[in-house]
Design a protein around this nucleic acid. Structure first.
Lengths: 152, 152
DNA sequence: ATCAGTGCAAAAGGTTTGCATCTGA
DNA sequence: TCAGATGCAAACCTTTTGCACTGAT
């Protein structure tokens, strides 16, 4: 299926990144990438460590952190900030570019895209004479479910 | 002048917040607020500690952190994320709501507002049936100065 | 064989907390 | 007076790093 195809492409592009930077393709790095690609759309490092260790005990936190760092530099994942002490990541290639709504009560994350909003952002960067490398839109609030819960 | 006026208003609103929450207006808290209001538009806690201590030695980091926490809850300052390990803050009431452009090379922060962008964000929240409490737009890139520097 | 990668544990950096003491209302 | 605030230092949590050992090419 196409999901596997995309995952393969991503894994391959990481291999390319590694080779291009004189880095080595190790079993640990492969395991980390595999678990990211077939895990949930958003993750943090601790979850990833658990996930990887479930199948291959003894992978060190340090290696996971280091691999995540490379994946970020390679542009394969991107770091997000949800106002928590630890970083969250998502697979950049998955579903293309999008922004986030975060429920402050239950932590649910809703993704959305909005071409008009994107255009405004591009325009703003251009106006300020800035070469945009990336951007981020986060909307915080209370989702409907939580509003209803409160009522009861 | 009007800046002093605004600062007084903010200080007063913090006093109100304190009273409303059964908290006490201490000299330390006053010093922290005063320095925020007459310091730079963006700051981090470490800078604030230095600033406060310059005039009143021995104010503890803990107290500054605690006070900053209250100021955030009171809605007087807001936390920002510039992809650095420590938090940055800005005075919410100053200049009204705005978003940020951050140069990844020199760290310069440019503020901007865009009503169309704000409207898009409001619409999105409404569409997803979310009661928006706050939002954030950050654009990262390379500013013109840094682009020119690179050339030389 | 070589040089990068790994695991471990320690260090680091930002932030929070427990507790004895002090203080504003 | 006395709940709440402070200062100090220790604790915490996430992330990074030094180093001896392991492993890929």
């Amino acid at each position: 299926m196409s999901a596997d195809r995309a995952a393969n492409d991503i894994a391959a592009s990481f291999d390319t990144y590694l080779r291009a930077n004189g880095l080595v393709r190790t079993a640990q790095r492969h395991a980390v990438v595999a678990h990211i690609l077939d895990g949930p759309p958003h993750f943090d490092v601790e979850e990833l460590v658990d996930l990887v260790r479930r199948e291959r005990a003894g992978v060190s936190r340090a290696t996971v952190y280091r691999t995540v760092g490379y994946l970020e530099k390679a542009g394969i994942i991107r770091k997000m900030d949800f106002n928590e002490p630890h970083a969250h990541y998502e697979v950049a290639a998955r579903c293309g570019h999008h922004e986030h709504l975060v429920c402050e009560r239950c932590g649910t994350i809703i993704e959305f895209t909005d071409p008009l909003l994107e255009e405004r952002i591009r325009k703003t960067a251009a106006l300020q004479d800035m070469d945009m490398t990336k951007h981020r839109v986060e909307i915080f609030g209370i989702c409907r479910k939580c509003r209803e819960k409160k009522r009861s």
